[in-house]
Simulated scan of single mutants.
Amino acid sequence: MRAGFTLAATVDDAGAGVVAVEVRGGDDAGPVLGQALLPEPLHGGSVAVPVLSLDEGPVALVVRAIDAAGRVGTATRELFVDATAPSVTPLPAAGSTLGASLAFTLYLNDGGAPWVAGADLEATLATLAATRAAANYTSFTATAAPGRISVSLDEERNGGIDFRLRPMDALGNTGPQLTIRYVVDRRAPRVTYRSPGDGGTGVSPATTIQIGFDEPMDSASLSAALRVTADGAAVPGGVSWDAAARLLRFTPAYVLDPLAAVTVTLLHTATDLAGNPMASDEVFSFQIDTYRFRDVAAEVGLAGYRGGTGESGEDHGPGGTFADLTGDGYPDLVLGTDQN
């Protein structure tokens, strides 16, 4: 029963005739919720009594028929009041991007209480319409199942689509029209930056590998898809994702060997935030420099080495300089290829 309604009462009075019918809440002494005054005594028939708005939930009503002599006949009725339209929860959330799966679901909830009539899925489905670029969009299929409406798109053109619907329940309670916007993205992400560059030589043995993209990526898929090898052996290391710069960084767990041939492979299973995978694997290679180095911080007093201070960039013989290659905060002695 809806909150404001009309109650039909059937009366039968062989005597003076019914002149009024009223509806009270709870019992004979309860508040008057509705009343119908008849223009002339009625000996039998139906009387329509408009009832005021009621709170949602179960309610006990007493119907009182009053005849011209003031005699009263009563009847009781238990009703359930449902005055709220169903709520709608879209999944994925409104504003999301539809990518690999061109589908979404609208979940309708009519409260879950025992007196609730339940969502009218077919009536709600009949109100579903869509617009793309200010024009009607009909390239979608929608089906109703218990508690939900499933929608799938029949085409893959990129761009925004606005879906509109008006939720209804079985009693005709109707909510305001909702607009739910989705953005379709079926384009594969692309690599726009590599460091070190493909085919590079003389790369620092303490290099950090970086890969840039043309759109935001799913960081978990990047970590799972990245492979780094040096002379064919897997290189362990740490992976980080800079969302603002759209940059994947890989820092090897150790300094790479001189002249090592490094290959970086990012499998096509890496996806963007819409779930679109890359069109193909991304592979590039580079070679580590010929310099060798030795971390002498724990072995010698740097200030006493050839009279120097051990500062980064200081010259110490043929091809020898200090530089913090390991990132541990201590200068490392870099020797030329003719040093041991």
Rank of each mutant, 00 (worst) to 15 (best):
E314T: 13
T251F: 01
V11H: 11
A270Y: 11
V264E: 09
R294V: 15
D218Q: 12
V283C: 05
E78Q: 15
T309R: 13
H43Q: 11
G99W: 01
G30V: 07
L54K: 00
P58H: 02
P58E: 10
N158V: 06
A75E: 15
G308R: 15
Y254H: 12
V191S: 08
A85D: 08
S152K: 08
L302I: 06
L266P: 03
T321E: 15
A142G: 10
D120C: 03
D154I: 00
L335V: 13
E40S: 15
F250M: 10
D328S: 10
V18R: 07
V62L: 10
W241I: 01
V81A: 01
G160R: 08
R187L: 14
E299M: 12
R24T: 13
R148W: 00
L266E: 14
S280V: 06
Q287M: 09
T251E: 02
V19L: 08
N136M: 04
A298D: 15
D154W: 01
Y193D: 00
N109G: 05
A85N: 06
L267H: 12
V32T: 15
P189M: 00
D82A: 03
S285V: 00
G197M: 08
L267D: 15
A14N: 14
L91T: 12
S152M: 06
A68H: 12
G308D: 14
V235G: 06
H43E: 03
S204I: 05
A230V: 03
D55T: 04
D328E: 10
P167T: 09
T269Y: 07
L42W: 11
L54Q: 03
P146D: 06
V72P: 02
R194K: 14
E78V: 05
Y291L: 13
D12V: 03
R249W: 04
T326M: 04
A260I: 04
V72N: 08
L91Q: 14
G232D: 09
T105H: 09
R187F: 12
Y305L: 15
D295L: 05
G111P: 02
A253Y: 04
M1R: 03
T326Q: 09
I180F: 02
A123P: 00
L61P: 04
A85V: 08
G159C: 02
V300K: 15
G317M: 11
G275N: 12
L267S: 14
P258I: 00
V264A: 10
E22K: 05
L153T: 10
A206R: 07
P41V: 07
E299R: 14
V11K: 05
L153I: 05
E314L: 08
L125F: 01
T207M: 10
S46H: 05
L325Q: 11
L178V: 02
D154G: 12
L128W: 01
I66K: 06
T271H: 08
P252T: 06
S87E: 08
A323H: 12
R190V: 14
S101N: 15
L125P: 11
A69I: 00
A298I: 06
T326F: 04
F5L: 08
P167E: 07
S46A: 15
G159N: 01
S219R: 13
A119E: 04
G329S: 13
F80V: 09
A134Y: 04
S221D: 12
R148G: 05
Y254T: 14
G307Y: 12
